[in-house]
Write a protein that binds this DNA or RNA. Structure first.
Length: 569
RNA sequence: GCGCCUGUAGCUCAGGGGAUAGAGCAGCGGACUUCUAAUCCGUUAGUCGAGGGUUCAAAUCCUUCCAGGCGCACCA
């Protein structure tokens, strides 16, 4: 598609006295393929030429009537638009050859030139179970990590564990007051969670518990032996639980640098802020006044001397820049922390760090219950493991029913079950809140991962039956594809590279997810009207190339969403 | 009170200056002796939250209002 655009840019440039790049950026896709495949809107020329746009389109058409390009074969005016029609044989051939040659790298580019992009994602709070609320950061972040990697960036997964903070004070108080060793041993994470919930219940009647928790956290920050021992234990037990989930999801991080990792750097941050003269004491605490920038003040140190979340985030940001010299630094964190990141980036800017503008908060909406927000404190939470397990079980049931003879049922059930949960989070715009609903989370019909995976499996099945010897590049066969369904399909396949770029630029994997739905739909239509194995000779070879390319596009796309593409299901 | 986000078909959502606003689900009716019917085809459905403005052109940009969500100094 890019080649076609470039061709049109070069072609039109002398006629309309615009730069080819300008023309390319003006080109748009018509709402209906009957109009054409790419349209040049003539509004922009109206003033310059002192002519009505439809007339300009008309004239340009006449000037081009004798021309014909490599990838387009016809232009025609429609109202104010100059519409180009692709030359199916040449274009299809080009697309299929690209996919064939680049195979698992089709759609990948080297835009990033190997520059570093740390992606802060998942980042659960230690001592709380891994809830469904954390899946969004995990799944969206991981997909962005993969997408940036495909664009030639060296993405670096950073799990900014919430392994520091007052919640540890709370846990220590709760455990010391009413916890028991045996229960902790028995089911660590859930037990810690229960202690946490109980703490918040009891604090309503005994507000002094809060002070006690704060003082335990202060002890922890000061290296008190008992406090550190508790902290260490709670952290280890929680990490073991998270790792099970990460293993199931196939996620690894380059760094598990939690908040505690930055403890030694906090004094330096405070020093730096003082040096730059942007902080002041207020009511015994150290704050940075951001009022001139329309933001509330931020507190870097409490009156009792303990630091806060943002102090550690400042240290982490600086550390990441020093360590990675990043092109961009992504924070895949819920939208409820938007203000926090505005403040964080503003303070970095005030500290004189030019790279502050390369820090990006990638927000996403909350997952909510019908009756309100999930709350760890109140114990209202759905465990991620439970969702994943139920989804896998459901997929297994469907496989038992639809494809009882399948060999690797377990693998397919995992791919489909996990894919469904992931896709649910990736296919809609991240900023919207999601209402958690079991039926929806476990729905495998319609616009879902299963729909895409099914198309993939069907293709694999045909290719298996055809035999691998038939899958060789054959330019003549590829240029034979001219049925509507064939043309629509390879035109869609041509879009993968630009969709990956768009997803990266907007930090929205949903663009890729929606695109894959289109690919699967176009394939299914093709499947129902154009027999592959039932066709013969060159045409069959051409169709095999087409579906093989489709398979490749789906596989490459799903991979970037972190979703498996099973060969049978 | 102030700030940020969201509001599109009965439901869940795409589209984020351009041509007739699109999918899925649900409903109804069709298509398996033929490459996996987890599929496909047809059909019903809209004051794009409301008003005002900018523009040749607004669901899309600006503005006011309404509704919901999320934040706003000792949590993360």
């Amino acid at each position: 598609m890019q080649k076609l655009k470039e061709e049109i840019g070069e072609l039109l440039a002398p006629l309309v006295s615009l730069e080819p790049e300008e023309i390319i950026s003006l080109l748009e896709v018509p709402p209906d393929t009957k109009f054409g495949d790419l349209a040049f809107p003539c509004f922009a020329l109206a003033k310059k030429r002192k002519q009505a746009p439809p007339l300009i389109a008309q004239e340009l058409t006449e000037e081009l009537s004798r021309e014909k390009g490599t990838y387009w074969e016809k232009v025609s005016p429609k109202g104010p638009y100059l519409n180009f029609f692709v030359a199916p044989a040449a274009f299809g051939c080009e697309v299929l050859q690209q996919v064939y040659e680049r195979s698992s790298k089709y759609g990948h580019t080297n835009l990033g030139m190997g520059r570093n992009v740390p992606v802060d994602y998942s980042s659960p709070n230690i001592a709380k179970p891994f809830g469904i609320g954390h899946i969004r950061s995990t799944v969206i972040g991981h997909s962005l990590y993969l997408i940036y990697r495909a664009l030639g960036y060296n993405s670096i997964g950073v799990n900014h564990l919430g392994d520091w903070g007052t919640q540890f004070g709370k846990l220590i108080v709760a455990y010391k007051r009413w916890g028991t060793e045996s229960e902790l041993e028995n089911d660590p994470v859930n037990y810690l969670y229960r202690l946490y919930v109980d703490f918040h219940k009891k604090v309503e009647d005994e507000p002094e518990l809060d002070d006690e928790a704060r003082s335990w956290f202060l002890k922890l920050e000061q290296g008190d032996e008992e406090a550190v021992a508790y902290w260490d234990r709670f952290k280890k037990l929680s990490l073991e639980n998270y790792e099970q989930v990460y293993n199931l999801l196939g996620i690894e991080f380059e760094y598990y640098h939690g908040e505690s990792h930055y403890n030694e750097m906090l004094e330096g941050v405070i020093e730096l802020v003082r040096e730059k003269g942007i902080a002041r004491e207020s009511e015994g605490a150290l704050i940075v006044d951001l009022e001139p920038y329309g933001l509330p003040p931020v507190m870097l140190r409490k009156k009792d001397g303990a630091t806060l979340y943002i102090t550690r985030d400042l240290a982490a940001a600086i550390y990441r820049y020093k360590t990675f010299d990043f092109a961009r630094s992504l924070y895949v964190v819920g939208a409820e922390q938007t203000l926090h990141f505005q403040q964080l980036f503003k303070v970095l800017e005030l500290l004189g760090f030019k790279w502050a503008r390369d820090c990006v908060h990638v927000p996403f909406g909350l997952i909510r219950f019908k009756d309100g927000k999930m709350s760890t404190r109140a114990g209202k939470i759905v465990l991620l493991e439970e969702v994943l397990q139920r989804s896998i079980n459901m997929a297994r049931d469907i496989i038992d029913e639809k494809n009882p003879d399948l060999e690797d049922k377990e693998g397919a059930a995992r791919a489909v079950g996990l894919g469904a949960v992931r896709f649910g989070d990736l296919s809609n715009d991240r900023v919207k809140n999601i209402e958690f609903d079991w039926d929806k989370a476990l729905d495998f019909s319609g616009e879902t991962a299963a729909y895409i995976q099914y198309a993939h499996a069907r293709i694999c099945s045909i290719l298996r039956k055809a035999g691998s010897d038939k899958r060789v590049w054959d330019e003549k066969a590829a240029s034979l594809l001219s049925e509507d369904e064939e043309v629509v399909l390879f035109k869609t396949l041509a879009l993968l590279p630009e969709k990956i770029i768009a997803a990266a630029e907007t930090y929205k994997p949903s663009i890729l997810a929606r695109y894959l739905i289109d690919v699967a739909r176009d394939f299914n239509r093709f499947y129902h009207s154009c027999p592959v194995l039932g066709s013969e000779g060159e045409l069959q070879r051409g169709r095999l190339l087409l579906i093989d390319a489709t398979r490749q596009v789906i596989a490459n796309g799903l991979e970037l969403l972190g979703i498996e593409a099973p060969e049978e299901m």
